[in-house]
Write a protein that binds this DNA or RNA. Structure first.
Ligand SMILES: [Mn+2]
Ligand SMILES: [Mn+2]
Ligand SMILES: [Mn+2]
Ligand SMILES: [Mn+2]
Lengths: 216, 216
DNA sequence: TAAAAAATTTAGATAAATCTAAAAATTAAT
DNA sequence: ATTAATTTTTAGATTTATCTAAATTTTTTA
């Protein structure tokens, strides 16, 4: 149906999209590790296929069809990540690259059966919601840890940064999905924070606080 | 490491190889649904990479490195087929095309964990042996049903033809892996056969007998 | 064993996805 | 409101895997 390159562009456009602004050529070039000229070429092709709305120099938005396809790829990515962690016992920092390949396995029948096999999980190992077969996402609203106050408490429900380094750091500090934390102190100098976790106090940088998603 | 096209060529060369003769350009073109000239181009590339021994006009053989790679792809193919049938409840005639995609997922760590997860199966849903992580195959020697005599009995252990049509036919006749059969009669006119299966007599064509592998 | 047939390779093109360098358009700054 | 900086697009190449048509080599047949 669509090539591997096209699928990766659609997924990236989806991830860069927000309600207000359209996605720029350079944003895509950065995320996809490619050159702006290559992006322009691909945008023309995706526009020809009616998967994006593209006005030269004005960036792009996904069409409804394009969004459906993007959500299906993300569904596959997250279900495979869940499989790798829950069934094959990989750590949460090991699965992203494998899922980048597996998300392109084409069969929807396969992914729907995998979904059933695992009991229809709602979130992937990084706390990201898994779209259902109709593209519906169970979106709960989360706050960045850096946006909450001293004495507030909450549950870690997601990460913004998915790099193995960050995930390994969190694992080591027991700052993993589902853990409850309380903000004990915020140092105004560098916005670093002291957290009370289930068994100990942890001092984290603002960089870390900026990449942890909390449900209050 | 190797491209998808390269992997498919290596696998095809492996499947077409036998002890005596080398594999010809045309054999590969037929199996891969491509043109002889395309095959020649690829053979040069694989020879440059030292994955095959190629003498123009004389066909090819895999090098030891090439064979290792081919066996690893076949291992992945068969383990994924086993997964699809045993864990996701697909029928044996539904899994081949999906496995054609999945065999190219690169991680060996993944495939080794999948192997463990499933309890180190020795044969895929079609009775084909699954190479272990060192490329060792548990080869038991099977005979074509068409090569055995009246009153001989045996167990169905494999199929030579893997098309959905053939597999669906076998399913319907209860001629599936593990079933015991006895040859009741062979008609000299067309080499068709009457078999005694566990619950009934079945009359099969020589075409069918030519594609069923039996252990005596 | 020479001609005919078949198999294989070479030459030259094409489509997809990428690149560099240059041109054009947009945005920001004086 | 010009000029300067930034962003984006166009033009022209490159790489990979294909293809068709023609040339070459091998094999078969008479
Ligand atoms: Mn991921
Ligand atoms: Mn994830
Ligand atoms: Mn198969
Ligand atoms: Mn099989």
């Amino acid at each position: 149906m669509n090539t591997l390159a096209e699928e990766n562009y659609l997924k990236s456009i989806f991830h860069l999209s927000d309600a207000e602004e359209s996605v720029s050529t350079n944003q895509l070039a950065t995320l996809l590790n490619t050159k702006a000229s290559s992006v322009t070429d691909m945008l023309k092709k995706l526009a020809d296929k009616a998967l994006i709305n593209y006005t030269p120099y004005q960036g792009v938005r996904l069409t409804l069809t394009g969004e459906k396809i993007a959500l299906n790829i993300i569904r596959k990515h997250r279900l495979w990540e869940y499989f790798l962690v829950e069934k094959l016992n990989f750590k949460w920092d090991q699965v992203h690259e494998m899922a980048e390949e597996m998300e392109h396995i084409s069969s929807n029948e396969l992914i729907n059966r995998l979904d059933k096999f695992m009991g229809y999980p709602k979130f992937d190992p990084h706390g990201d919601p898994i779209p259902d077969m109709n593209g519906q996402i169970n979106q709960h609203d989360l706050k960045l840890l850096s946006a909450i106050e001293v004495n507030d408490s909450g549950i870690i429900c997601g990460v913004k940064n998915h790099t193995p380094n960050f995930l390994q750091y969190l694992e080591k500090q027991s700052l993993t999905i589902g853990k409850t934390i309380i903000v004990i102190e915020i140092f105004p100098f560098d916005q670093s924070m002291v957290l009370q976790t289930e068994n100990k106090e942890v001092h984290i940088s603002s960089e870390v606080a900026n990449n942890l998603l909390i449900s209050l």
